[in-house]
Amino acid sequence: MENNIFSLENKTIIITGGSGHLGSSMAESFVKYGARVYLASRNNDKNADFSRYLANKYKTDVFYIKMDTNNSSSVKEAINHIMLKEKKIDVVVNNAYNGKTGEMLTGTESDWMSSYDGSIHSTYRVIKEVLPIMVSQKSGSIINIASMYGVVSPNPYIYGESGQNSPPHYGSAKAAIIHFTKYLAGHFGKEGIRVNCISPGPFPNEQTQQHQKEFMAQLCEKNPMGRIGKPEELQGIAVLLASDASSYITGQNICVDGGWTIW
């Protein structure tokens, strides 16, 4: 892949939540393009299973490490371990998310705080540990995963009685990630570090697709392309932002949403 600007050969990539619904697809694309990939999350068993699957499929090493992005010590320990082994970190994808559901009137302050902790605060913790490494290297790409609901507010009418309503803290925390991305790009661009954001549109998981047919129809009707997204449709943008093909792209929030945010 020497002459391929999308090649990820010799790049060390950490992806948090790398064995989850969307993270697993992005992680696979990194492996496919030649990177040394570390799946990082609290669920080490799931990480181990998925790393074995990828290693067998692509006949290469795929690594995993336990990292609780809600815990600064856990993040620091995991990053230190990877640095001892790899001596560099080229790309970090902040994909992990954990948060509460709920409505504005019935949700609690605890729901709000815990959702921020598992979103923007988790992104901050990882970047806080990785950034000095990238500054020292004079290179690096940080990819933050936000959401279309960090750009536009959810239309309550499409949710009906599905129980899938997006809570108030979700979109506001994702909007914070988008702004944080721009801040970092502005302050560290001269250090050779690029920071960008991907905002996925409607990518409901398999369980939602199977059990919420009316809601799924509403999602498709709202979308200009008339359908939901498939996890593999995040692979192209993920590889682009991780590779040298995006060497002059920074501070951007790229919506992969089938056109959702045009309205």
Results as ranks from 00 to 15, higher is better:
256 V>T: 10
84 L>M: 11
240 L>M: 14
59 K>V: 08
167 P>N: 13
246 S>N: 02
262 I>H: 13
109 E>L: 08
158 I>F: 06
27 A>T: 08
89 I>E: 01
252 Q>G: 00
103 E>A: 09
2 E>I: 08
255 C>W: 05
216 M>G: 06
225 M>V: 14
176 A>Y: 07
15 I>D: 00
65 I>H: 07
16 T>Y: 07
177 I>W: 09
122 S>L: 10
142 I>A: 04
78 A>K: 14
23 G>I: 00
176 A>R: 05
199 S>R: 09
80 N>R: 15
258 G>T: 02
228 I>N: 10
148 M>E: 14
151 V>W: 09
76 K>T: 11
108 T>V: 06
60 T>N: 04
171 G>C: 10
46 K>M: 12
159 Y>D: 14
118 G>W: 12
135 V>K: 15
81 H>C: 09
187 H>R: 13
210 Q>Y: 01
117 D>L: 01
210 Q>F: 04
100 K>M: 11
181 T>F: 04
123 T>W: 02
209 Q>D: 01
221 E>D: 15
59 K>L: 07
221 E>W: 05
262 I>W: 01
83 M>L: 15
84 L>C: 12
185 A>N: 01
68 D>V: 07
216 M>Y: 05
179 H>Y: 13
73 S>W: 00
214 E>Y: 06
38 Y>A: 06
17 G>H: 05
54 L>P: 02
113 M>E: 15
236 G>L: 04
253 N>P: 03
41 S>T: 00
260 W>N: 03
33 Y>F: 15
107 G>S: 15
38 Y>P: 03
43 N>T: 09
199 S>D: 09
43 N>S: 15
189 G>A: 12
194 R>A: 09
101 T>N: 15
255 C>V: 11
217 A>L: 15
76 K>V: 01
234 L>E: 00
14 I>H: 03
200 P>I: 07
235 Q>C: 04
210 Q>M: 07
45 D>A: 10
105 L>P: 00
216 M>Q: 06
78 A>V: 13
82 I>S: 04
52 R>N: 14
72 S>R: 12
29 S>Q: 11
255 C>A: 15
97 Y>Q: 12
12 T>S: 13
9 E>S: 12
113 M>W: 07
103 E>N: 12
24 S>E: 11
95 N>H: 01
76 K>G: 01
164 Q>L: 10
38 Y>K: 04
147 S>Y: 03
202 P>Q: 13
